Simulated assay, not measured.
Amino acid sequence: MTGWRIEPEGVQTVLTKVGTAAELLGTAVENLPPHAETVVAGSANSPIIADAIAGFFEFYKPTLTSIGNRINASVGGAAAATLWYRTGDETMAAEQQAAAQTVAGTGVSTFTVPPVPGS
Rank of each mutant, 00 (worst) to 15 (best):
M1F: 03
T2M: 08
W4E: 10
R5Q: 07
E7M: 12
E9I: 12
E9Y: 13
E9M: 11
G10S: 13
G10I: 15
V11F: 02
V14F: 05
T16A: 09
T16C: 08
K17M: 08
V18T: 01
V18N: 08
G19M: 00
A21E: 10
E23C: 07
G26V: 05
G26R: 09
T27C: 00
T27A: 05
A28D: 03
E30V: 02
N31T: 10
L32H: 02
L32K: 02
L32D: 02
H35T: 12
H35K: 08
H35D: 05
A36L: 15
E37M: 03
E37T: 01
V39Y: 12
V39M: 06
G42I: 14
S43E: 12
A44L: 10
A44I: 15
S46I: 00
I48L: 07
A52D: 13
I53K: 08
I53M: 14
I53L: 14
A54F: 11
A54P: 03
G55P: 07
F56V: 13
F57Y: 14
F57A: 14
F57Q: 01
T63S: 04
T63Q: 02
T63N: 07
T63L: 02
L64C: 04
T65C: 01
T65V: 06
I67N: 09
G68Y: 03
N69V: 08
I71V: 08
N72C: 14
V75M: 13
V75A: 14
G76A: 08
G76D: 10
A78C: 10
A79V: 06
A79S: 01
A79I: 03
A81C: 07
T82A: 00
T82V: 13
W84T: 06
W84Q: 07
T87Y: 08
D89G: 14
E90F: 09
M92E: 11
M92F: 07
M92T: 06
M92K: 00
M92C: 03
A94C: 10
E95P: 06
Q97C: 02
A98L: 11
A99Y: 07
A99G: 13
A100F: 00
Q101T: 15
Q101V: 12
T102M: 13
V103G: 06
V103R: 06
A104C: 07
T106N: 09
T106F: 07
T106V: 15
F111K: 03
F111P: 12
V113W: 14
P114A: 03
P114R: 04
P114V: 07
P115W: 14
P115I: 09
P117E: 01
P117G: 00
G118P: 02
S119R: 04
S119K: 00
S119P: 04
